[in-house]
């Protein structure tokens, strides 16, 4: 009777969020960092849907849909930024994007 309690879903969301956070802090490949951010957004979505089930309210599902829409906008910006930066630097190392914090170095 695991699936009839909501606690396992919360544990799963927590594990996925932790893996995403670990990916962000331990990898240097900018694509993997982006995918880890997507994984964290997905874990939060799972938490929203679980709590929608718990409170029997559609509001959290609407919130989860907003998160998906924001993730789509984020994907467009992030990936076009990666394309521009890869054309300039020929590298996917996130350390080589330090130049973004300085005005004149690009």
């Amino acid at each position: 009777m695991i699936a009839h309690s909501l606690f396992p879903y919360i544990v799963l969301a927590m594990i996925l969020f932790s893996i995403g956070l670990l990916g962000v802090i331990s990898r240097k490949n900018i694509f993997v960092i982006y995918m880890s951010i997507e994984l964290m957004l997905n874990a939060i979505n799972l938490l929203f849907v679980t709590l929608a089930h718990y409170h029997q309210s559609m509001a959290s599902q609407v919130m989860a849909m907003f998160v998906i829409a924001i993730a789509a906008a984020e994907a467009a910006i992030f990936l076009s930024l990666i394309v521009v930066l890869y054309k300039r630097k020929k590298s996917l190392d996130s350390d080589s994007y330090k130049a973004l914090s300085q005005k004149e170095s690009l």
Binding site: L12, I15, I19, L22, L39
Partner: peptide
Amino acid sequence: FAIGGALGMV
């Protein structure tokens, strides 16, 4: 599957 895919991704 979800946890395995996430670990593989990292």
